[in-house]
Design a protein around this nucleic acid. Structure first.
Lengths: 218, 218
DNA sequence: ATAAAGTAGAAAATATAATATTTTTTTAAA
DNA sequence: TTTAAAAAAATATTATATTTTCTACTTTAT
């Protein structure tokens, strides 16, 4: 998730962020400092540091003198996030394909292979394999954009991906075959350096996922 | 800059961020906790909270167990930032024009008027009026995108604008007439709901500014 | 009787200071 | 140049004070 896990602060950050993304800390709930302090075995200052970071990334909402809350789920927020993800990821994949070298290709092949293997497992028991699936899905999408040459873009993209996926993790049903096919087309388009097909498929992939996830609000 | 200035924490955040943007805290320098504590009259914990926020926005670089540093100036970083700003702001202005109502128009007229008045002053003494100029330039660019309907997009855009402008604030020469003309064309295009002209002008505006700012690296 | 306004006490956030530990950096010696 | 000791600085916690917000209760007015 982050760089290295040397300090208590960075461990706490990783764990709380993960718990928000996977819904262990539910949307809208209040993050009482005293509770977190006990549950995550860190001091008040450390907890506050962590929450401030998460707040500026938009996973947590900080209300001055009222405390911290896990960011709400709202339909509009999800739609906004999906659209920004499309914008950033399509831009990044375009640059990535332009710059693509053999290392990039190799990494892409590997990450798609691992993802497609796991997708078979995931079909069987989504709830159990959600966390693993997210790791490999991210691995693939990161491989796609990793050659874009812009660290700033990669940083933004990674936050938007996590925000998007937090919503998806709240849906109990796996999207399945359809998403797997999109991954395959996307993969092959990127290898063939077909930017147009890649971006079109990627946009479709994200927006289909959005549609699927919108079921939370029905 | 931020919401309200109620807590020491948020005041400290605003002041340190401003000092980074306007170069009072210079690129690459180490932000020693003890110094900051004394210079900004806040406790260690408060300073650390602030720096963690600024680090996750990318104004400060946090190196685990080595401390915090003002983010470097590099040519590549500036180019990346400018390009992401183009991507986000052009997207946002397109949405904004689509949704544009009379309130938006009114606000746009007002902010462009105020900016163009100040631009005359700025010509005379850029160094003196830099801070004011930045305020009104931001006011105008914000007015342009404010109707895009996406809070997530506005949040991202505001950070990218500040990162872009930090570099520009380091250039002693004012870009002048050329930038003013671009503002005027942009303003009129937005009023006429001419999305194509608006986005083209905006892109040109940002990239010309980039070129001007790149002089730092020569 | 009911709704609004006020109030006291509890709970929680904010903020600092003192201090201990660990890591990094600097300085000096081999 | 390497190594060892000392200093500096970051990390982390705890205790504590202050302020603000929240909650439950009481008073007041319609």
């Amino acid at each position: 998730m982050n760089n290295k896990n040397n300090t208590i602060s960075s461990i706490t950050y990783d764990v709380i962020k993960r718990d928000i993304i996977f819904g262990k800390l539910k949307p809208s709930i209040k993050l009482k400092l005293d509770n977190l302090k006990n549950n995550y075995n860190a001091s008040l200052s450390t907890i506050r540091e962590t929450l401030n970071r998460l707040a500026s990334e938009g996973f947590v909402k900080a209300e001055e003198q009222r405390g911290f809350f896990v960011n709400d789920f709202t339909k509009d927020d999800l739609i906004e996030i999906a659209n920004i993800r499309v914008l950033l990821e399509c831009h990044a994949i375009t640059l990535s394909i332009e710059n693509g070298d053999t290392d990039w290709e190799g990494n892409l092949v590997a990450s798609h292979h691992k993802l497609s293997l796991l997708e078979k497992e995931t079909q069987k028991d989504y709830k159990k394999n959600r966390e693993e699936w997210k790791k490999y899905d991210w691995g693939f999408h990161l491989a796609l954009v990793s050659n874009c040459g812009s660290q700033n873009l990669l940083n933004l993209h990674s936050i938007l991906y996590d925000k998007y996926i937090r919503y998806q993790m709240a849906v109990t049903k796996y999207r399945g075959k359809e998403a797997e096919d999109e991954h395959k087309i996307l993969f092959e388009a990127a290898l063939k350096r077909d930017t147009k097909l890649a971006t079109e498929t990627l946009e479709k992939h994200i927006l289909k996922g959005l549609e699927h996830t919108l079921s939370i609000f029905k």
